[in-house]
Design a protein around this nucleic acid. Structure first.
Lengths: 200, 200
DNA sequence: TTACTTAATAGACACTGTGTCTTCTACTTC
DNA sequence: GAAGTAGAAGACACAGTGTCTATTAAGTAA
């Protein structure tokens, strides 16, 4: 069903996708028109409507493809990981590596455009990862003082927010460093010696 | 300069503001037209352009007023606070109280519409609050293992994200409880006894 | 109260962008 | 080579924007 597509269709869609991405690199999404996308593609505006309902539909296709690509590289393929170690989870490292690989794309969607659909999809991926960690903790009979749903929302938002901060600031730290620091923040906190543990 | 406004102008602007807010309660911002706002206000469309450049400009005015209101209730008015105590910072509690007071507004802007301008302004308010806490820590000669800018981004995003989560879920916890849990999360972490501190 | 000033109305206008449709031409596939 | 489908080109009605002008209504100050 994927290979049996008319080569003209494949070519056309690829051109529309590339054009929108190029335009989004130059100006904000809101101000881009279907005519501009068509002209940039050297295709006719009517042809656009042969493939998409509207501009949003084209963007959605692009985002879905990117999300698929991200999900694949973050998939758990029999990764052995010891939660007690100081090393970050390899899947978490891969997330940062993917974002470096396609950093222009992620900067546009997560930072500049702050695209809700895409951001929430990335949040979901992070959330699933965070949930795995907390369910591991509960299996180890480690009890939470903070409600689990609240603490999952906390860590997920923190991870996502820092990733966006990191992209915005042109990725100043390596994937391994980032994954290590975030893991540290969500488990032992930011301090060298926790000053609050005595007064607890 | 505020009192010397023509009463007709005050009335007109208030009507436009109310109309847009009412409409945003019913449908998404994108789909609202200037004509609709005018009709809802029983005012003429041309009158709208006497006061605003466009729809975005009107929304900006509304958001600026709301931000001003929020900033005032979160202002540090000689609040005595002991950082070592288990009690949350009273200013932090006030933030949640304000959001309950105007919960419909905050739900629309921070959750449903996910308005970038407003969300970032709220983020800034939270960030300033977080920064105060970390600068207090540094004055106490408490050293950070995680870079400070990274840990500020982490805590700020976590706070903001949990606030949005809390609004989305119809504020299931009280302001004091929320402020307490978030303070706990950012200092001692989510666990009753931290299982990572031994292996550190 | 009157006279001056400014707001709001009502309707018209040009303009931009959308989404659809039709006819014609050019590929692709069998 | 013939049939089927994709894309081009241009026209269309429509919705919404922002501006402008002439007219009416409301506020202000002597």
């Amino acid at each position: 069903m994927d290979t049996k597509l008319d080569p003209r269709v494949k070519r056309t869609r690829a051109m529309f996708e590339k054009s929108l991405l190029d335009l989004m690199d130059e100006k904000e999404y809101r101000s881009i028109t279907v005519l501009e996308i068509a002209q940039r593609s050297t295709l006719n505006r009517a042809t656009f409507y042969l493939h998409y309902y509207d501009k949003d539909h084209l963007l959605e296709q692009i985002l879905d493809e990117a999300l698929n690509d991200l999900k694949i590289s973050v998939e758990v393929k029999a990764v052995e990981y010891e939660y007690k170690s100081e090393n970050p989870h390899p899947i978490f490292v891969r997330l940062f590596e993917k974002m470096i690989e396609k950093n222009k794309f992620y900067q546009i969607m997560l930072v500049r455009e702050n695209n809700y659909y895409f951001t929430e999809a990335v949040r979901k991926i992070i959330k699933d990862f965070v949930k795995e960690g907390t369910s591991y903790m509960r299996n180890q009979d480690i009890t939470y003082k903070v409600p689990v749903d609240l603490s999952v929302a906390y860590i997920t938002s923190a991870y996502l927010g820092v990733i966006i901060w990191w992209l915005k600031n042109d990725m100043p730290y390596t994937p391994t460093y980032m994954a290590t620091q975030l893991t540290r923040m969500s488990t032992v906190g930011p301090f060298a010696d926790n000053p609050f543990l005595n007064s607890d």
